[in-house]
Design a binder for these strands. Structure first.
Length: 441
RNA sequence: GCCCCCAUCGUCUAUCGGCUAGGACACGGGCUUUUCAUGCCUGUAAGAGGAGUUCGAUUCUCCUUGGGGGUGCCA
């Protein structure tokens, strides 16, 4: 029965949530919502050093940011310690585990694995899996310092929470054989397993901090939208089967299926994520975009009020061409501050041709006396100017843009001039021409 | 070393024996009556190799090669 399906996300809070980890959370969530089951959260906080209240809050914050809403109360693993140890005693009593002074570190409790036969299970994504008992080894379930080991705690908590489907990373496949024996020893039903392929870097190695952003917080910081990150991560190792890529949550929930999950590792491609993020930003409701826009302006120390009004018009121009929020301040500085930075590459490419200062002066002279400064008028004026010099419009457009904005990309030039207004346009053209003549640019 | 898993364009993927191998990102070209971007059109680009099964293999089987995971008193 669908409503009886219970899955869980069981991270250890370390302060930062790795994308590989959150991807497992996403698949758990997707599956739970697809079948109308329960998505549980368990915090494996047994590492007291790292599992600080701040680390736990960071984890929950990350879950909320991605709208991975969990069902019911959070289970904190440390609260189960007494139970874990009781069960270890029980296994000892039943002869399913034994004590040993391994390596002279004091007595630990070791779980007995079968010595013959095979352990097998059907993995929802990897298919039929089996391992010969002789290829497995007994393993420690309680350390000599009296603390329960991951395998014990993890399995017992899954029993406690009534988990029916365990969806986790590929790196746990070997553990699965141990866990299955533990479930059996405890007389608990063995859950179904789904092992997700790992996310790897461009070189095919496990994706780590060395490869760029590896933690959810970093993507957030860099201006990625949670829905975009969610969508992209969902598509790493899963595809709906048709050609859909940009999908809403509901569409993903509806289409999700382990049968469509790949068993091979997937490479993380930042370029595609960035493209997808741009698509999401372009589709954002204006108030949401504006709120983030303002926040980025504030942090960059730029005023929210533009030099020349026309804030909405700028937003109209900027929103569809924003890839990540992090780019925003640099892309708009010219619009909000009297002094704006010049992009070196843009300057080198568009302003260093001989005669450029004269060209900018010509433009200023032509634009100066205009009765109005609408895009139509300025375009007609610059077009006429270019024609009078038997030159292409582009010859004027590019240097003018860099001169007044400091950048090679941005809104259409004539919209830009209008956004800036006559005074500043003229001042900037002359100012840039002067700097070029002085050789200070 | 041993055990397990994986293998389609550079990348993410579709294909569940019939393929002129489709889509997306990225890249190149073109158009939007000579601006950035968008949009649209378009191009380059893939079935690791070898056997077998079959009328027919990218699809099924085996081997090789390559990659990944595991092999802790880490999780």
């Amino acid at each position: 029965m669908a409503e009886n399906i219970r899955v869980r996300f069981a991270p250890s809070p370390t302060g930062k949530v790795h994308i590989g980890n959150i991807r497992a959370a996403i698949f758990n969530w997707l599956y739970a919502r697809h079948v109308g089951g329960t998505f549980l959260l368990r915090v494996e906080d047994t590492d007291l050093e790292r599992s600080t209240p701040e680390a736990i809050e960071a984890l929950l914050d990350c879950m909320r940011w991605l709208r991975l809403d969990w069902d019911g109360e959070i289970l904190y693993q440390t609260s189960q310690r007494a139970h874990h140890l009781e069960v270890a005693e029980e296994l000892l009593r039943k002869g399913l585990a034994y004590k040993e002074n391994k390596g002279g570190q004091g007595e630990c409790v070791i779980f007995r694995m079968p010595k013959e036969g095979v352990i097998e299970y059907d993995d929802l994504v990897k298919g039929h899996m089996k391992k010969k008992a002789k290829d497995t080894q007994d393993f420690v379930i309680v350390r000599s310092d009296g603390s329960p080991v991951f395998h014990l705690a993890n399995v017992l908590d899954d029993i406690t929470q009534g988990v029916t489907h365990i969806i986790r990373g590929d790196d746990h496949v070997e553990n699965t054989f141990k866990h299955i024996m533990l479930f059996r020893a405890l007389g608990a039903p063995v859950p179904r397993y789904a092992h997700l392929p790992m996310i790897v870097n461009a070189a095919g190695k496990p994706y780590s901090k060395r490869d760029g952003s590896a933690f959810v917080g970093e993507f957030r910081e860099q201006g990625y939208l949670p829905d975009a990150l969610f969508n992209y991560l969902a598509l790493l190792g899963w595809a709906p089967g048709d050609d859909r890529e940009l999908m809403t949550r509901d569409e993903m929930v509806q289409a999700f299926d382990f049968a469509k999950c790949k068993a091979s590792p997937a490479r993380f491609d930042m370029r595609k994520l960035t493209w997808m993020n741009g698509e999401y930003i372009a589709r954002q409701p204006r108030p949401a975009f504006e709120a983030e826009f303002d926040a980025r302006l504030d942090r960059a120390g730029l005023p929210r009020t533009p030099l020349n009004g026309h804030r909405d018009a700028l937003l109209d121009q900027i929103q569809p061409r924003t890839k990540t929020y992090a780019d925003l301040p640099a892309n708009c500085a010219w619009f909000f501050a009297e002094t704006y930075p010049f992009d070196d590459k843009a300057v080198a490419k568009r302003l260093h041709a001989p005669g450029t200062p004269d060209l900018l002066d010509q433009a200023a002279a032509a634009l100066g006396p205009l009765p109005d400064f609408s895009p139509q008028t300025t375009e007609a004026t610059i077009t006429a100017l270019a024609e009078s010099h038997a030159a292409k419009l582009a010859l004027y457009v590019h240097p003018i843009r860099v001169a007044v904005t400091g950048r090679a990309e941005g809104p259409g030039l004539f919209e830009t001039l209008w956004l800036l207004g006559r005074e500043r346009t003229l001042a900037r053209l002359r100012d840039t021409a002067a700097k070029l003549r002085e050789g200070t640019l």
